[in-house]
Design a protein around this nucleic acid. Structure first.
Lengths: 396, 396
DNA sequence: AGCTATTACTTGACATGGTGAATGAAATGC
DNA sequence: GCATTTCATTCACCATGTCAAGTAATAGCT
């Protein structure tokens, strides 16, 4: 692009915030459902055809939406003109903040990653971290108009949050991070829990695209859980949702670091698995890949550990499905490698613990890089902008 | 036979269906929050004061709402005039349908029961049951204008359903019961799952009144679960929610009738408890009250059975709170008597299995008669009428 | 080809529900 | 008695959505 930093010749697509709630609803539906005719949109949004004509007009004029060519119709009557959304027109930035590292990506409205970077955190002091974030955001947003910025971090964040509450990793408490970043960058900013951000990414543009109900279960350093109900990522009144890490799976079993016997963490975290495999072999420095290699060689210890892990996964999935009636569960996280040797026992445990009346859920493994977490945060930012505001009125 | 709707000497308060969505919102808030000033309503509904003046006017004119006297103000400025809702003005009927009996109550909008009756079901044939229901409804609705009718039954019903899907108790499948009853009585009718109806009753006018998030766990013949999230009773995509009856509590434990070892049903259903107490004593005809009596005498078998039941309850509550972040769990059902001797172990198990980060929930026992189920169905009918319609448009 | 049924879209009059700004009303605190 | 604070109203205006009516484009049938 020709433009220099901050120059006026950036293509200035109108901000999504300028759209009314009706238009946002249309954009949201198009984002999730691909090109759709006005008639189909009207049906999905529960509006009259007349409304859609009216709502779509300004979107067409602005160029955000354009009319495609009618498909070969298998219908009887006049074919509809599909509306196609120019999702690449709007950019978002997603940031995943951990105790020692920051990941950030720039993505378009559909969640396609355009650029990304990462940096180590030198100090957990608020001004230092803030400066790091701002530097990365400015770098990624150079010569781009960024619609919104999403930050995902561990802890008790609600779906669209603005302050960091009790973050043990960073040692922060009650930090108005969204406001700080917004002031420094000029970009509207929202916070979210990291598991919730990952879930949002899965739901809008990952393997769960278009599903209204699903759960995302992550295994790795810890166990994370995100739940989508009625198209919305659940966050609970305090952001305290999905604390499934210490669910008891079995009365007899290994101990987790909190002293629970047979809890989910004791079977599923990477540390638990590597320790369980390594100790009987007299090795403490084993990693997950080595554990998998042992299993591949037929090592009985490794096979048993993975089988137990699979069983734990199956029990958790069954509980979720029984309680919430979910039709799909997505497995993710950097410990997902274990699934190779755990899938059979997982399926067996799932079948055993599923309620006889419940429908068998679709279970999908979603292998992804670490930037998936940051991408999820970008999706959260997009969802935030397009969210139908419940409370429009802010008193003076 | 036609309903009594047409009789000319009924005080004809305008139907709630005539209210627009804005007015319904006000009525709903007043129903849940008692008398509220316009200013407070505006804050709760996220509207401007101007909106409230406008919305409240027709309600005041119609007499459904009247202005109370300002309370002794502890505020600084002008005291607001509380709007009080005349909840007794609108009647609803709730019906609980089981395999062999029908319970029905008439209640006002606030869920206060005005009358009730029950009848045995002679035959499970659809026309026979329909006739029974219609007769009871006509009897309860005599000389009254009934706003809506709610029917609660076991099975895979969604929150506001219209057809009975796969009901094993009655042997029905795909019966458009709501439509049939509506035609025969002239009263708008809605179906709901029975656990969901009970939950609705708890949420609107029971011990959970005013709470936005809670779960209702029932013990008795089976184990039921209803979940409220963001003020709405959860029903899932297929109405398959809360199938918690066969969750595994322990590897070792009694068998349930499906052959699961140590599942929730095997610890908590009344049949399981009475059998567990009775068999060691060589008695098969024991009931729950007798079991309690034995426990009161210090019978070690009974005490142990109740302690195990309490532990199962505690585990289930902990799981629910961990996953959903619920601040409160209400216990109900006709088997609740067991709690007298199970509470300690329940609390212990809850504390043990709750995630270290999770907030300890409020656990409340809600002892109630059998008509609580029918009352819940009446509340569902009221919620249904006052629900903000997502899809207003019905195409011609 | 021409007709009919079917589905898609547009138009304009109208209703509803919401806002902001200005104003008035009723209490407390000094 | 007066400032302050909070509550409520009024009026002009906007956004969204419906209805009824009409136009447009296709498939299938005769």
């Amino acid at each position: 692009m020709l433009g220099v930093q901050g120059s006026p010749d950036i293509v200035d697509s109108p901000s999504l915030t300028a759209l009314g709630p009706a238009a946002r609803g249309v954009v949201r539906a198009l984002l999730l459902g691909g090109p759709l005719t006005r008639a189909e949109l009207a049906r999905r949004l529960g509006l009259s055809p007349a409304s859609l004509t009216k709502t779509a007009r300004p979107l067409l004029v602005s160029g955000l939406v354009s009319e495609g060519i009618a498909l070969v119709s298998e219908q009887r009557g006049r074919p509809g003109a599909p509306l196609v959304l120019d999702a690449a027109r709007h950019q978002f930035i997603g940031v995943k903040l951990t105790a020692d590292e920051i990941f950030a990506v720039r993505a378009d409205a559909r969640g396609r990653v355009e650029a990304g970077q990462s940096a180590q955190i030198e100090s957990a002091e608020i001004p230092a971290v803030l400066a790091d974030i701002v530097a990365m955001v400015n770098e990624l947003g150079r010569d781009q108009r960024i619609q919104a910025l999403g930050i995902g971090l561990a802890g008790e964040q609600t779906r669209f949050d603005d302050t960091v509450r009790r973050n043990n990793y960073l040692g922060w408490d009650q930090v108005p991070l969204a406001h700080l970043v917004e002031e420094a960058t000029g970009i509207p900013t929202v916070l979210s829990g990291d598991a919730r951000a990952l879930t949002a990414g899965v739901q809008w543009s990952g393997p769960g695209k278009g599903m209204s109900e699903l759960a995302v279960l992550t295994v790795g350093v810890g166990i994370g859980l995100g739940i989508v109900l009625e198209d919305k990522v659940l966050s609970g009144p305090n952001g305290l949702v999905g604390m499934i890490g210490h669910h008891r799976i079995s009365d007899s079993g290994p101990l987790c670091d909190l002293g629970h016997r047979g809890c989910a963490s004791s079977y599923l975290t990477t540390a638990a698995i590597t320790a369980a495999i390594g100790v009987p072999h007299g090795r403490v420095d084993i990693d997950l890949a080595q554990g998998c290699a042992l299993a591949a060689e037929g090592d009985p210890v490794a096979l048993r550990v993975f089988a137990d892990a699979g069983r734990a996964l199956g029990v958790i999935i069954a509980q979720l499905v029984n309680i919430l009636g979910l039709p799909a569960v997505i497995l993710a996280g950097d410990g997902l490698e274990l699934l190779t040797y755990a899938e059979d026992s997982m399926q067996a445990a799932l079948a055993e613990h599923l309620d006889p009346v419940a429908r068998h859920p679709k279970v999908v493994a979603f292998t992804s890089g670490f930037d998936e977490w940051a991408r999820g945060a970008a999706v959260v930012a997009c969802q935030w902008l397009l969210d139908p505001p419940r409370h429009r009125y802010t008193r003076p």
